[in-house]
Amino acid sequence: MDNKNHWSLYEVFVRSKQGLSHRHVGSLRASDDEVALQNARDVYTRRNEGVSIWVVKSELITSSQPDEKPEFFDPSLDKVYRHPTFYNIPDGIEHM
């Protein structure tokens, strides 16, 4: 067992309290999923920071590339009519 890095990199997500979503807090290395969960508890929730933890191997995450940012996010840029402020509503109209 001389090869290095046989412990996988995991990303850690913590739900800080009931009613909020899990939020990425950092990463860690662990030999398997169960150990990752225990390490995540020790590393990221030593002060009651969470009521629930997700761990996921970093290699399983598919992400967008910063280089392709303009093209990738372009479709949402030119559609101002998706925002409520696009529409002119006269003064005096309430509850809208």
């Binding site: 067992m1 398997d32 150990v35």
Partner: peptide
């Protein structure tokens, strides 16, 4: 310990 954990996994 590190090696054993890896083999176990």
């Amino acid at each position: 310990v590190r090696d054993t954990a890896a083999v176990y996994a």
